[in-house]
Design a protein around this nucleic acid. Structure first.
Lengths: 270, 270
DNA sequence: CTTGACCCTCACGCCGCGGGAGGCCGGAGG
DNA sequence: CCTCCGGCCTCCCGCGGCGTGAGGGTCAAG
């Protein structure tokens, strides 16, 4: 009879008993004792904490408010101060919770954008892509680029930037590209030769346009120039502006690279 | 010319300059240096941190991911490991955010309930109150009780309990009260006299019923017994069960109190 | 008397810095 | 030249609410 392991023997319950009954950890009880939120009703000779019915009652209340997300200081006030404005405190807490929810929802939206940017490369519908980037734009290009470059830092930076770019910004990029294309054609007409200051300036401008897109080193630009010449789709685009423009551009990039002590024949993307 | 205070002098920017341009605190820059997330590109002879364009670039990326709520370790992985699964990490983050939103929404609901309990005392519509507590129940009673006892611990405990009580639990309480009322009437019929063991047992049962409602000490019970007799509405209720029941009950409570060394004539609510 | 389940008291760790103490550095003004 | 002020440096404590040991006493049962 007397040896029941968890009898409410008028003495009180030990931390372990309270812990399993109330579902709080022993460490939490220790902590709340330390900070004076819930003192055990008494101690045994050996120093064991004992919680009587009154303390357990208080503990119940503590648990309730803790589950509502109140801080321990707030709980102390609510439990201890008879003049405390409990509904007011709860309302403040609710307002804070609402704020945090809002913040998290914004985070979620931002994460969605960033995920889409990393996976699709562009945050535009196919229609918007056609309208902004022109009908020659291939919607599969970002997916292909991701296949090839998805594991590079450049792709990631590109994705991070495009996550914060709306249709207007894309329009600006597209306009800049179109302007550049026109300028390249005009330069060919005017007889500008690769390696001349005028050609170098255009090459530099090309690099700047792309850098707003993703960081393009001169070496990478060399690779790009060669791709423009070799890839049928790109070559067709540039030669459609002026016959031979793809080759002219590649030669201009090569010349500019040489002027910066880069050997275009050995340059790599990295 | 050379003395521009924040020139990008090919050397780099100091912490203060970076701070004001990127909107991060100097302390954060120190911290990120300490943990190796963002090392300054170089140090001056005096030990000043200098951030060149490359470091600022990296910092930009850090800020982006930090605004998405990623931890610094996650950011380090995303920025540094080319094999890292960035969309996967972002999706994991989004899932975590969703969980936290859900948790907070539950908190908000719980807070609403608790606020209502503290302000109205009951979380039932007037119809539910009538159906459960009987047509004799006065919907104004909780408001009046709040007026009188709102600043007491007892009211708060009552509110906390009623916040977690649904209609079914209220029904159980109402049933217990009705059972008790019947038992009191039967006892009077049977000629049970105040102070007898049978009467004491009923008084104790009354106290238990109320304790599930809110903690009722014997002294408080004495006050309650006197109110039952003095308050016309309560008296009418009990005398409606059996003529003289209000007085019989008050005398029974007084007798029980005396048996526990309490003087009913001087007992107070506290 | 031993065992094993409890209990105790320190004391560090976490996460991302904020904030302050105490002191060096650098450019401008007198 | 010195002085002043603002910016920079390196520690180092603090927060919130405990988790997670380490190292050692206590208690009832076998």
């Amino acid at each position: 009879m007397r040896s029941m392991p968890d009898a409410t023997d008028a003495e009180g319950l030990t931390v372990g008993q309270v812990s399993s009954r109330l579902g709080v950890t022993v460490r939490a009880l220790h902590h709340w004792d330390e900070i004076g939120l819930l003192r055990p009703s008494l101690r045994t000779a050996a120093g064991y904490r004992l919680y009587t019915a009154g303390a357990v009652e208080r503990l119940h209340r503590i648990v309730v408010y803790r589950e509502l997300g109140l801080g321990l200081d707030g709980i102390r006030t609510v439990l201890g101060d008879p003049t405390a404005d409990v509904p007011g405190a709860l309302r403040a807490q609710r307002a804070q919770v609402a704020q945090r929810i809002e913040r998290l929802q914004q985070l979620s939206v931002g994460l969605d954008r960033m995920i889409a940017a990393h996976e699709r490369g562009l945050l535009l519908t196919v229609e918007q892509q056609a309208a902004i980037l022109g009908p020659r734009w291939d919607p599969d290009w970002p997916a292909q680029a991701r296949q090839r470059y998805g594991d590079t830092t450049q792709w990631r930076q590109y994705a991070e930037r495009s996550a914060s770019r709306g249709p207007e910004e894309w329009q600006a990029v597209a306009d800049a590209v179109a302007d550049l294309d026109r300028a390249l054609g005009d330069a060919m007409d005017a007889g500008v030769t690769p390696g001349s200051p005028e050609a170098n300036e255009l090459v530099e401008r090309h690099r700047e346009v792309f850098t707003s897109y993703f960081p393009l080193t001169r070496r990478m630009q060399v690779c790009l120039g060669r791709m423009y010449e070799a890839d049928p789709a790109f070559a067709a685009h540039y030669d459609g502006i002026r016959a031979g423009l793809a080759t002219w551009f590649r030669r201009s990039v090569d010349a500019s690279a040489r002027a910066h002590d880069i050997d275009p024949d050995t340059a790599t993307w990295q």
